[in-house]
Protein backbone atom coordinates (compact mmCIF):
# COMPACT_ATOMS: atom_id res chain seq x y z
CA UNK A 1 0.00 0.00 0.00
CA UNK A 2 1.38 3.35 -1.03
CA UNK A 3 0.76 6.52 0.94
CA UNK A 4 1.47 9.97 -0.50
CA UNK A 5 1.17 13.35 1.14
CA UNK A 6 -0.88 16.06 -0.61
CA UNK A 7 -0.93 19.57 0.86
CA UNK A 8 -4.41 21.09 1.20
CA UNK A 9 -3.74 23.63 -1.51
CA UNK A 10 -2.98 20.74 -3.85
CA UNK A 11 -6.66 19.70 -4.00
CA UNK A 12 -7.75 22.45 -6.41
CA UNK A 13 -5.14 21.68 -9.11
CA UNK A 14 -5.80 17.97 -8.64
CA UNK A 15 -9.52 18.46 -9.32
CA UNK A 16 -8.77 20.76 -12.25
CA UNK A 17 -6.62 17.96 -13.66
CA UNK A 18 -9.42 15.41 -13.18
CA UNK A 19 -11.85 17.68 -15.02
CA UNK A 20 -9.78 17.32 -18.19
CA UNK A 21 -10.49 13.58 -18.42
CA UNK A 22 -13.65 13.03 -16.41
CA UNK A 23 -17.05 14.31 -15.51
CA UNK A 24 -16.49 14.91 -11.81
CA UNK A 25 -19.18 14.42 -9.16
CA UNK A 26 -18.49 15.35 -5.59
CA UNK A 27 -19.80 16.95 -2.42
CA UNK A 28 -21.59 20.26 -3.03
CA UNK A 29 -23.97 22.32 -0.98
CA UNK A 30 -27.64 22.46 -1.93
CA UNK A 31 -29.98 24.77 0.00
CA UNK A 32 -27.35 24.68 2.76
CA UNK A 33 -27.21 20.87 2.98
CA UNK A 34 -24.50 18.43 1.84
CA UNK A 35 -25.32 16.66 -1.44
CA UNK A 36 -23.41 15.09 -4.31
CA UNK A 37 -23.51 17.03 -7.54
CA UNK A 38 -21.55 17.78 -10.67
CA UNK A 39 -18.31 19.67 -10.11
CA UNK A 40 -17.32 21.98 -12.94
CA UNK A 41 -14.62 23.85 -11.02
CA UNK A 42 -12.74 23.16 -7.76
CA UNK A 43 -14.72 26.03 -6.25
CA UNK A 44 -17.90 23.93 -6.41
CA UNK A 45 -16.52 21.41 -3.96
CA UNK A 46 -17.82 21.65 -0.44
CA UNK A 47 -15.56 19.39 1.56
CA UNK A 48 -17.64 19.14 4.68
CA UNK A 49 -17.24 15.74 6.23
CA UNK A 50 -20.94 15.34 6.92
CA UNK A 51 -22.99 12.63 5.21
CA UNK A 52 -24.94 13.64 2.11
CA UNK A 53 -28.72 13.35 1.93
CA UNK A 54 -28.72 11.21 -1.21
CA UNK A 55 -26.18 8.50 -1.88
CA UNK A 56 -23.71 8.44 -4.79
CA UNK A 57 -25.50 5.40 -6.29
CA UNK A 58 -27.32 7.90 -8.55
CA UNK A 59 -24.15 8.21 -10.67
CA UNK A 60 -23.90 4.46 -11.28
CA UNK A 61 -27.57 3.58 -11.22
CA UNK A 62 -29.45 6.73 -12.29
CA UNK A 63 -33.06 7.34 -11.13
CA UNK A 64 -34.20 7.08 -14.75
CA UNK A 65 -32.20 5.54 -17.56
CA UNK A 66 -33.02 4.63 -21.17
CA UNK A 67 -32.05 1.04 -21.95
CA UNK A 68 -33.58 0.45 -25.37
CA UNK A 69 -34.89 2.34 -28.40
CA UNK A 70 -37.48 0.68 -30.60
CA UNK A 71 -39.39 1.22 -33.79
CA UNK A 72 -42.62 -0.53 -34.75
CA UNK A 73 -44.24 -0.74 -38.18
CA UNK A 74 -43.25 -2.53 -41.36
CA UNK A 75 -39.57 -2.72 -40.41
CA UNK A 76 -39.38 -3.07 -36.64
CA UNK A 77 -36.01 -2.27 -35.08
CA UNK A 78 -34.42 -2.52 -31.66
CA UNK A 79 -31.33 -0.73 -30.44
CA UNK A 80 -29.89 -1.26 -26.96
CA UNK A 81 -28.80 1.94 -25.22
CA UNK A 82 -25.85 1.93 -22.86
CA UNK A 83 -24.97 5.38 -21.62
CA UNK A 84 -21.60 5.60 -19.91
CA UNK A 85 -18.94 8.27 -19.76
CA UNK A 86 -15.67 8.65 -17.91
CA UNK A 87 -16.56 9.87 -14.47
CA UNK A 88 -14.76 10.51 -11.22
CA UNK A 89 -16.69 10.23 -7.96
CA UNK A 90 -14.81 12.51 -5.61
CA UNK A 91 -15.16 12.65 -1.84
CA UNK A 92 -16.96 9.35 -1.32
CA UNK A 93 -17.26 8.10 2.27
CA UNK A 94 -16.27 4.61 3.34
CA UNK A 95 -19.90 3.45 3.89
CA UNK A 96 -20.75 4.42 0.33
CA UNK A 97 -17.67 2.66 -1.05
CA UNK A 98 -18.81 -0.48 0.76
CA UNK A 99 -22.25 0.07 -0.79
CA UNK A 100 -20.80 0.37 -4.30
CA UNK A 101 -18.86 -2.87 -3.74
CA UNK A 102 -22.18 -4.55 -2.88
CA UNK A 103 -23.88 -3.08 -5.96
CA UNK A 104 -20.98 -4.39 -8.08
CA UNK A 105 -21.76 -7.88 -6.84
CA UNK A 106 -25.52 -7.51 -7.32
CA UNK A 107 -25.25 -6.25 -10.87
CA UNK A 108 -22.72 -8.94 -11.86
CA UNK A 109 -24.80 -11.73 -10.34
CA UNK A 110 -26.77 -13.86 -12.80
CA UNK A 111 -27.38 -12.05 -16.08
CA UNK A 112 -24.82 -9.26 -16.05
CA UNK A 113 -26.31 -5.79 -15.96
CA UNK A 114 -24.35 -4.23 -18.81
CA UNK A 115 -25.64 -0.71 -18.24
CA UNK A 116 -24.41 -0.63 -14.66
CA UNK A 117 -21.19 -2.50 -15.31
CA UNK A 118 -20.18 -0.40 -18.32
CA UNK A 119 -20.71 2.74 -16.27
CA UNK A 120 -18.83 1.22 -13.37
CA UNK A 121 -15.88 0.40 -15.67
CA UNK A 122 -15.62 4.05 -16.61
CA UNK A 123 -15.77 5.28 -13.02
CA UNK A 124 -12.92 6.16 -10.71
CA UNK A 125 -13.61 6.52 -7.00
CA UNK A 126 -11.79 8.90 -4.74
CA UNK A 127 -12.73 8.36 -1.11
CA UNK A 128 -12.40 10.68 1.84
CA UNK A 129 -12.57 10.31 5.63
CA UNK A 130 -15.72 11.61 7.25
CA UNK A 131 -17.14 12.57 10.62
CA UNK A 132 -20.25 10.73 11.81
CA UNK A 133 -23.44 12.66 12.44
CA UNK A 134 -26.09 11.55 14.93
CA UNK A 135 -27.60 9.04 12.47
CA UNK A 136 -24.41 7.28 11.32
CA UNK A 137 -23.74 3.78 12.66
CA UNK A 138 -21.18 2.42 10.20
CA UNK A 139 -18.98 1.25 13.06
CA UNK A 140 -21.71 -1.21 14.13
CA UNK A 141 -21.86 -2.81 10.67
CA UNK A 142 -18.09 -2.81 10.05
CA UNK A 143 -18.04 -0.20 7.31
CA UNK A 144 -16.29 2.59 9.20
CA UNK A 145 -13.11 1.88 7.26
CA UNK A 146 -12.51 0.49 3.82
CA UNK A 147 -9.43 -1.18 2.35
CA UNK A 148 -10.50 -1.69 -1.27
CA UNK A 149 -13.06 -0.46 -3.78
CA UNK A 150 -11.43 2.94 -4.27
CA UNK A 151 -8.74 4.25 -6.61
CA UNK A 152 -7.55 6.86 -4.14
CA UNK A 153 -8.57 7.65 -0.57
CA UNK A 154 -7.92 10.98 1.13
CA UNK A 155 -7.21 11.05 4.85
CA UNK A 156 -7.35 14.55 6.29
CA UNK A 157 -4.51 14.66 8.84
CA UNK A 158 -4.77 18.38 9.54
CA UNK A 159 -1.62 19.57 7.80
CA UNK A 160 -2.82 18.08 4.52
CA UNK A 161 -4.10 14.82 3.08
CA UNK A 162 -2.44 11.46 3.29
CA UNK A 163 -3.51 9.87 0.02
CA UNK A 164 -3.92 6.13 0.12
CA UNK A 165 -3.36 4.65 -3.32
CA UNK A 166 -5.84 1.85 -4.09
CA UNK A 167 -5.23 1.08 -7.75
CA UNK A 168 -2.77 1.73 -10.54
CA UNK A 169 -5.38 3.98 -12.19
CA UNK A 170 -5.53 6.00 -9.00
CA UNK A 171 -1.77 6.21 -8.82
CA UNK A 172 -1.51 7.45 -12.40
CA UNK A 173 -4.15 10.09 -11.77
CA UNK A 174 -2.41 11.29 -8.63
CA UNK A 175 1.01 11.48 -10.23
CA UNK A 176 -0.38 13.19 -13.29
CA UNK A 177 -2.47 15.82 -11.52
CA UNK A 178 -0.83 16.55 -8.18
CA UNK A 179 2.54 17.28 -6.63
CA UNK A 180 2.83 14.84 -3.76
CA UNK A 181 5.61 13.44 -1.66
CA UNK A 182 6.00 10.18 0.18
CA UNK A 183 3.99 10.36 3.41
CA UNK A 184 6.05 10.09 6.60
CA UNK A 185 5.40 7.39 9.22
CA UNK A 186 4.19 10.14 11.52
CA UNK A 187 1.62 11.27 8.98
CA UNK A 188 0.47 7.71 8.33
CA UNK A 189 0.13 7.04 12.07
CA UNK A 190 -2.11 10.09 12.28
CA UNK A 191 -4.70 8.24 10.17
CA UNK A 192 -5.12 5.69 12.92
CA UNK A 193 -5.27 8.34 15.64
CA UNK A 194 -8.08 10.12 13.82
CA UNK A 195 -9.83 6.84 13.19
CA UNK A 196 -9.68 5.91 16.88
CA UNK A 197 -11.19 9.26 17.77
CA UNK A 198 -13.94 8.77 15.20
CA UNK A 199 -14.77 5.37 16.67
CA UNK A 200 -15.72 7.09 19.93
CA UNK A 201 -18.06 9.59 18.26
CA UNK A 202 -21.05 7.43 17.38
CA UNK A 203 -24.41 8.25 18.97
CA UNK A 204 -26.30 5.57 17.02
CA UNK A 205 -25.11 2.03 17.71
CA UNK A 206 -26.31 -1.53 17.29
CA UNK A 207 -26.24 -3.67 20.42
CA UNK A 208 -25.02 -6.88 18.79
CA UNK A 209 -22.17 -8.06 16.60
CA UNK A 210 -22.87 -7.44 12.91
CA UNK A 211 -22.31 -11.14 12.13
CA UNK A 212 -25.19 -12.17 14.42
CA UNK A 213 -27.77 -9.89 12.78
CA UNK A 214 -28.93 -12.27 9.99
CA UNK A 215 -29.74 -14.86 12.65
CA UNK A 216 -31.52 -12.31 14.83
CA UNK A 217 -33.62 -11.15 11.88
CA UNK A 218 -34.43 -14.72 10.88
CA UNK A 219 -36.14 -15.17 14.23
CA UNK A 220 -38.01 -11.86 14.12
CA UNK A 221 -40.62 -12.53 11.45
CA UNK A 222 -43.51 -12.44 13.90
CA UNK A 223 -42.18 -9.66 16.10
CA UNK A 224 -44.74 -7.04 17.20
CA UNK A 225 -42.28 -4.36 16.08
CA UNK A 226 -43.45 -4.61 12.44
CA UNK A 227 -47.05 -3.71 13.26
CA UNK A 228 -45.83 -0.89 15.47
CA UNK A 229 -43.73 0.78 12.77
CA UNK A 230 -46.16 -0.18 10.01
CA UNK A 231 -48.80 1.91 11.72
CA UNK A 232 -46.80 5.13 11.46
CA UNK A 233 -45.08 4.44 8.09
CA UNK A 234 -46.22 6.47 5.06
CA UNK A 235 -45.06 3.87 2.55
CA UNK A 236 -43.38 6.79 0.76
CA UNK A 237 -40.29 4.96 -0.48
CA UNK A 238 -37.88 7.61 0.80
CA UNK A 239 -35.85 5.09 2.84
CA UNK A 240 -35.36 3.02 -0.31
CA UNK A 241 -34.52 5.93 -2.53
CA UNK A 242 -31.87 7.42 -0.23
CA UNK A 243 -30.37 3.98 0.51
CA UNK A 244 -26.98 3.38 -1.15
CA UNK A 245 -27.66 -0.35 -1.57
CA UNK A 246 -31.32 -0.42 -2.68
CA UNK A 247 -31.19 -1.35 -6.34
CA UNK A 248 -34.75 -2.33 -7.36
CA UNK A 249 -36.08 -0.83 -10.54
CA UNK A 250 -39.16 -0.93 -12.73
CA UNK A 251 -39.06 -1.09 -16.54
CA UNK A 252 -41.48 0.93 -18.66
CA UNK A 253 -41.98 1.91 -22.27
CA UNK A 254 -42.64 5.37 -23.59
CA UNK A 255 -43.81 5.84 -27.16
CA UNK A 256 -43.61 9.04 -29.19
CA UNK A 257 -46.73 10.76 -30.45
CA UNK A 258 -46.21 9.21 -33.88
CA UNK A 259 -46.99 5.88 -32.13
CA UNK A 260 -44.18 4.10 -33.97
CA UNK A 261 -40.95 5.01 -32.19
CA UNK A 262 -40.23 4.82 -28.52
CA UNK A 263 -37.89 4.12 -25.63
CA UNK A 264 -37.75 1.56 -22.91
CA UNK A 265 -36.36 2.93 -19.67
CA UNK A 266 -35.83 1.81 -16.12
CA UNK A 267 -36.67 3.85 -13.06
CA UNK A 268 -35.96 3.39 -9.38
CA UNK A 269 -38.60 1.35 -7.61
CA UNK A 270 -39.04 0.92 -3.87
CA UNK A 271 -40.29 -2.09 -1.90
CA UNK A 272 -42.05 0.09 0.68
CA UNK A 273 -44.41 1.51 -1.97
CA UNK A 274 -47.91 0.06 -2.10
CA UNK A 275 -47.76 -1.10 -5.71
CA UNK A 276 -44.28 -2.68 -5.55
CA UNK A 277 -45.59 -6.20 -5.00
CA UNK A 278 -48.77 -5.78 -7.02
CA UNK A 279 -49.04 -8.35 -9.79
CA UNK A 280 -51.41 -9.18 -12.64
CA UNK A 281 -55.03 -9.25 -11.60
CA UNK A 282 -54.43 -6.61 -8.95
CA UNK A 283 -53.18 -9.07 -6.32
CA UNK A 284 -50.68 -7.69 -3.86
CA UNK A 285 -48.53 -10.09 -1.88
CA UNK A 286 -47.32 -7.40 0.53
CA UNK A 287 -50.45 -5.37 1.13
CA UNK A 288 -49.67 -3.72 4.44
CA UNK A 289 -46.99 -1.18 5.28
CA UNK A 290 -45.85 -3.46 8.11
CA UNK A 291 -45.23 -6.34 5.69
CA UNK A 292 -43.36 -4.06 3.32
CA UNK A 293 -41.14 -2.60 6.04
CA UNK A 294 -40.37 -6.07 7.39
CA UNK A 295 -39.38 -7.06 3.88
CA UNK A 296 -37.10 -4.05 3.45
CA UNK A 297 -35.38 -4.55 6.81
CA UNK A 298 -34.91 -8.24 6.11
CA UNK A 299 -33.38 -7.47 2.72
CA UNK A 300 -30.77 -5.36 4.48
CA UNK A 301 -29.98 -7.74 7.35
CA UNK A 302 -30.93 -11.24 6.27
CA UNK A 303 -32.07 -12.13 2.73
CA UNK A 304 -29.23 -10.46 0.82
CA UNK A 305 -26.73 -11.34 3.51
CA UNK A 306 -27.66 -15.00 2.95
CA UNK A 307 -27.32 -14.59 -0.79
CA UNK A 308 -24.19 -12.45 -1.03
CA UNK A 309 -22.49 -13.05 2.30
CA UNK A 310 -22.54 -9.52 3.70
CA UNK A 311 -24.99 -7.15 5.37
CA UNK A 312 -26.73 -4.81 2.92
CA UNK A 313 -27.04 -2.07 5.51
CA UNK A 314 -23.85 -0.02 5.49
CA UNK A 315 -24.90 2.16 8.44
CA UNK A 316 -24.97 5.45 6.52
CA UNK A 317 -28.03 6.60 8.49
CA UNK A 318 -29.69 8.24 5.49
CA UNK A 319 -32.97 6.34 5.93
CA UNK A 320 -33.16 7.53 9.53
CA UNK A 321 -32.64 11.16 8.55
CA UNK A 322 -35.16 11.05 5.71
CA UNK A 323 -37.97 9.37 7.66
CA UNK A 324 -40.56 11.96 8.65
CA UNK A 325 -42.12 9.63 11.22
CA UNK A 326 -38.76 8.75 12.79
CA UNK A 327 -38.62 5.07 11.95
CA UNK A 328 -35.05 4.30 12.94
CA UNK A 329 -33.45 1.20 11.46
CA UNK A 330 -30.91 1.05 14.28
CA UNK A 331 -33.54 1.34 17.04
CA UNK A 332 -35.72 -1.27 15.36
CA UNK A 333 -32.74 -3.60 15.06
CA UNK A 334 -31.90 -3.03 18.72
CA UNK A 335 -35.49 -3.90 19.67
CA UNK A 336 -35.17 -7.14 17.73
CA UNK A 337 -31.83 -7.84 19.44
CA UNK A 338 -33.48 -7.30 22.79
CA UNK A 339 -36.38 -9.62 21.89
CA UNK A 340 -33.87 -12.27 20.79
CA UNK A 341 -31.94 -11.93 24.05
CA UNK A 342 -35.17 -12.31 26.06
CA UNK A 343 -36.17 -15.40 24.11
CA UNK A 344 -32.82 -16.97 24.86
CA UNK A 345 -32.82 -16.29 28.57
Amino acid sequence: MEYRFLPKKGIAPFVTGLLKDFKVYGPVEKDGFPMYGEITSPKDIHLSHAPTHLSPKQFLFPPKETILRFKNGAKPALEPVIEAHNQALFGIHSCDIHAIKLLDRVFSYGPRDVNYLKRRDKTVIIGIDCVPDKYCFCKSVNTMTVDSGFDLFLHDVGSGFVVEVGTQTGKNLLYKNAKTKKATMKEIKKIKEIRDKKAEMFVTKLNAEASTLPLIYSGSYNSPVWEKIGKICYGCGSCNNVCPTCYCFDVRDEIKTNLTEGERFRVWDACTLEDFAKVAGGHNFRKTRAERLRHRFNRKFQYLADKFGGLFCVGCGRCIRTCLVNINIAEVTNELIEEANKDRS
Binding site: L54, P63, Y234, G235, C236, G237, S238, N241, V242, W268, A270, L273, E274, D275, T322
Partner: peptide, 8 residues
Protein backbone atom coordinates in the same frame (compact mmCIF):
# COMPACT_ATOMS: atom_id res chain seq x y z
CA UNK B 1 -46.81 6.64 -4.93
CA UNK B 2 -46.27 9.93 -3.13
CA UNK B 3 -44.40 13.03 -4.25
CA UNK B 4 -41.50 12.04 -1.92
CA UNK B 5 -40.43 9.57 -4.62
CA UNK B 6 -40.31 12.29 -7.27
CA UNK B 7 -38.41 14.57 -4.87
CA UNK B 8 -35.72 11.96 -4.24
Amino acid sequence: YPVCVDCK
